[in-house]
Design a binder for these strands. Structure first.
Length: 505
DNA sequence: TATAACAGGACTCG
DNA sequence: GCACGAGTCCTGTCCGT
């Protein structure tokens, strides 16, 4: 149970070859559970009751140390625990076999435990002085914005409170209410952008929010997590997401800013040790490629084989114009539809994203599905499959149950339908990069290269490598990632390197 | 009355 | 009424000590 936390401390001293982790097995059997604890699992899979450890040691202030627990009681607890674990193992492995998940479990997920433990243990160096300096820059502007906002409002209030901000905007300043939340006025970025022209306070608030987020989450938040060695050791969770992706926490290194130049500067704080560099590889359009493969859509497969810009290509097909004549607006609309398709598109969702009418959105979608006819068929088929089986699968037989498909509530059912479409796409992409991670880890060891995998960001891997081995690692990473699996179309990988995470773009 | 736990809303990423 | 998948920060409220 949760062997990664043990490997984390031990694997330098012990050569772990055979290990098992039932939390992983349980995750594969049902990835939608919120946590995997042995007493719960005993009930679910064996219909047996194991008293939780809490019953033995109590909780809160009165928690006993194990050495103070009655020896007789402790002994019987441990023996029950062990026999139950063995029975549970047998049961879970039979499910894994029945569901054709042996390869996924033994060749991907279990080896990956060690890879993630190694990433967590290695951590990543952070340039604290740089972060502090950047923080001071942001704070200076925040102080000015704060004063500016108070002067527009006419009084001081807590800008971070949506409740108070709502009162200022919609009661004091009488700005038009665009949208409401369950509890009051909506003041999110989408709403604020629509209010931009109506009062100077709006731009100040948008700017304040951006800088506040950068400061609290990515500067102050990180500084407190830096170890004595000057590193940050994030946790990589392997049994959280419903689709098979990994997640990262404390801190989350999978959502470091990149979309604005200002935020992107945070990435300059992440650095390798001396004489080392970062080598990064990222999959280009991996989810759309997976969709092309799963649906077998020849038009889309052909587009990827030509290696044309997929959004421009889509725009030219959907709007019936020559590739060269696609306008930036057409491309950006086509891009939104491509994204939407992967999420399990709805005319409402697309209309919100593009800020167009529902009717227009529907026309875009209809044109799209006329172009990519097999995608249309695939969308209908996968929902049907989900309904019939109760679950959908990825290319490596990762499974997600979708009880929402049976709901009498239209909204819930609609959600289930989008999940049925999105999960095989997002989940198969997760399968692919996990295979690449396991292979990279093994190859770096076998070839005795001075490189270590340190980050994964869903479609991107970052390796920390001694400068002398950069070229070899680039070559290796590119090959391993592009050939992790063989689809009906090529996987494209972009490789970069640099002396900070910012530069390894 | 002070504090902890949790939900909601806002923001970040792929 | 909402796009799919996550995590963190802040506020405001609820609840037990």
């Amino acid at each position: 149970y949760d062997i990664k936390s043990d490997l984390y401390y031990l694997f330098e001293d012990v050569n772990f070859k055979n290990y098992e982790d039932l939390t992983i097995a349980e995750y594969l059997i049902d990835p939608s559970r919120s946590k995997y604890e042995i007493d719960k699992s005993a009930k679910i899979y064996l219909n047996r009751n194991l008293h939780s450890l809490e019953d033995l040691v109590g909780k809160g202030k009165k928690t006993l140390s194990l050495s103070d627990v009655d020896k007789e009681k402790l002994g019987s607890y441990i023996s029950m625990y062990l026999s139950l674990t063995e029975d549970l193992r047998e049961k879970l492995l039979s499910y894994i076999d029945e569901r054709d998940m042996k390869e996924l479990y033994y060749d991907i997920e279990l080896p990956l435990v060690k890879v993630l433990a190694s990433m967590e243990r290695e951590g990543i160096y952070v340039n604290k002085d740089y972060l502090i300096e950047l923080g001071e820059e942001f704070q200076k502007e925040l102080d000015e914005l704060e004063k500016e906002i108070y002067s527009y409002a006419g009084y001081e209030f807590n800008i971070n409170s949506t409740k108070q901000l709502g009162e200022v905007l919609f009661e004091k300043l009488n700005l038009p209410v665009i949208k409401k939340t369950k509890t009051g006025y909506s003041t999110n970025a989408e709403v604020l952008h629509k209010l931009k022209g109506s009062h100077e306070i709006i731009e100040a608030i948008l700017r304040y929010r951006t800088l506040k987020k950068l400061t609290t989450t990515y500067i102050d938040g990180f500084i407190t997590l830096i170890s004595e060695e000057g590193k940050i050791h994030s946790l990589f969770n392997q049994n959280i997401t419903a689709t098979g992706r990994i997640s990262s926490q404390d801190p989350n290194l999978q959502n470091i800013p990149i979309k604005t130049e200002e935020g992107r500067k945070i990435r300059k704080a992440f650095i390798p040790p001396e004489n080392y560099s970062f080598v990064g590889g990222d999959y280009s359009q991996v989810e759309l490629r997976v969709l092309a493969h799963l649906s077998g859509d020849e038009v889309m497969i052909e587009a990827f084989k030509e290696d044309a810009d997929i959004h421009t290509k889509t725009a030219s097909e959907v709007f019936h114009v020559d590739f060269e004549d696609v306008t930036p607006l057409q491309r950006s609309n086509a891009k939104a539809v491509n994204f939407g398709i992967v999420y399990g598109i709805s005319d409402y969702g697309l209309s919100q994203d593009l800020d167009i009418s529902r009717k227009e959105a529907k026309e875009y979608i209809d044109n799209y599905l006329d172009t990519y006819k097999e995608i249309k068929t695939y969308m209908a088929d996968i929902v049907e499959t989900g309904k019939k089986q109760g679950y959908v699968e990825t290319i490596m037989h990762r499974r997600r149950y979708i009880p929402e498909l049976e709901s009498k509530n239209r909204n819930i059912r609609g959600f289930g339908e989008r999940v049925a479409l999105n999960t095989p796409i997002q989940g198969s992409a997760a399968d692919i990069i996990k295979i690449a991670m396991v292979e990279i880890y093994q190859e770096l060891q076998e070839k005795q290269l001075r490189g270590k995998l340190i980050l994964q960001v869903h479609d991107e891997l970052i390796i920390q490598v001694e400068d002398g081995d950069i070229d070899e690692v680039k070559e290796l990473l590119s090959n391993v990632m592009s050939h992790a699996v063989e689809l009906d179309l090529p996987l494209k990988v972009d490789i970069n390197s640099g002396k900070t995470w910012y530069d390894a773009k």
